[in-house]
Computed example of a mutant assay.
Amino acid sequence: MATTKRNNSNSTEEITKDELSLVRSYLLLTFIHKVFERDCRVISKSGLFKTPQLYIELVSGAAKKASLMLQEVNRELTSRHLKINTVRQDQRGVEAQYNCRGYIGELNILWPGFRREMMLRMRAYLGLATDSSMVSREEDVVQLALSI
Rank of each mutant, 00 (worst) to 15 (best):
T78N: 14
E106I: 01
W111M: 07
N85C: 09
E76F: 07
V87F: 05
G105M: 02
R115L: 04
P112L: 12
L107K: 05
G113M: 08
V94L: 11
R75W: 09
N85M: 13
L107P: 00
R75Q: 13
R88P: 02
R121T: 12
R75M: 13
L107I: 10
R80A: 11
F114G: 06
V94M: 14
L107H: 00
T78C: 08
M119G: 00
R101C: 09
V87T: 15
M118Y: 04
R92C: 08
G105T: 01
Y98D: 01
L82K: 03
T78F: 12
Y98F: 15
A96R: 02
Q89W: 02
Y103N: 10
N85T: 11
M119S: 01
T78L: 08
Q89F: 06
S79Y: 06
I109P: 00
R116T: 04
C100T: 06
R88C: 04
A96D: 00
R92G: 14
T78W: 05
Y103W: 10
Y98K: 11
R116V: 01
L120G: 06
Q89L: 11
R101T: 01
L107N: 03
G93D: 02
R116L: 15
C100A: 15
C100L: 07
A96F: 00
T78D: 12
P112M: 14
Q91Y: 10
Q97Y: 03
Q89E: 15
L77K: 05
A96P: 00
V94A: 09
R80C: 09
V87W: 01
I84K: 08
Q97P: 00
L110F: 15
Q97I: 14
N85L: 15
C100P: 01
K83R: 11
L110G: 08
F114T: 01
M119N: 01
